[in-house]
Amino acid sequence: MVVPLHKTSNTIAMMEYRKEEILLKAEKINLFFGEKQVLRDIDLCIKNIVRPGVTQGQVVSLLGRSGIGKTQLFRILSGLQKPTSGTVTGIDNKPIMQGDMGVVFQNYYLFEWRTIRQSLELAAKKNPQLKPTDIKDQIDQQAQLFNLTEHLNKYPQQLSGGQRQRASIIQQLLNGSNFLLLDEPFSGLDVIMLEKVVELLLKVSLSDELKTLILVSHDIETSVALADTTFILAQEDGKPGATIIKEVDLCERELAWEKDVKNKKEFANTVQEIKALL
């Protein structure tokens, strides 16, 4: 079960890890819109990464150019859309159904007619692991963690983009899924906000061993800096539809879980390598 055990001379504790059970597996995913093939033979596998002494979730990024089919793959992985052929399974090979994964849409969609607290309550009520008596405390705790306490009684229209994003994330976290899929989470953010979102996602990924974030983005640098694995979605010469052309194991390259990873030469090389593939 234990896959690689990596150690480096200067950061022994940091880079020690092993990949265990499969958390999500997509096999032979094909998607057609009429005659047009959008996705072709997509295979990807996300495993539980275990780091001794650290509660470490998984952060996977799915990179690709605009219009390549990232959002379609995102919808298929989340169970919101059925592929033309192929399967998406979770732990113990169970097929992924809609609702099995938390999804944060690109424009951070929330029920506009509900206050944030009401939206969070509705999400929490659907979480089988939460007792009704614990819901209020959980909401207050999460709101405090994500700096939203003073906005709980506001409507979504009264929040800024960043606050809406945080509310969307909390909503999905309270819903109880270990998976959180985020569609273009870095799109349209300024530098300060971008840092805050990265910090927030790291916080989420460190909250539980099985917590798995799947980021669908075209922001290569930010995604690679945050992820432990990157899948590249692109079109192969002469073949229809996009497919995963490369899986980059950032743990293996010692580029995962490092705060100042962007300063590393290997990081710049990896970004260049990915850019060349897109």
Binding site: V103, F105, Y109, L110, F111, E112, L122
Partner: peptide, 24 residues
């Protein structure tokens, strides 16, 4: 997206009808 959000929150079809159309 309004329906998608309900799906991600594990609403069944009648709950979606209630939340998005009747209340919303």
């Amino acid at each position: 997206q309004e329906y998608d959000l309900c799906k991600t929150l594990r609403y069944n079809r009648w709950q979606t009808l209630y939340e998005v159309i009747i209340i919303g």
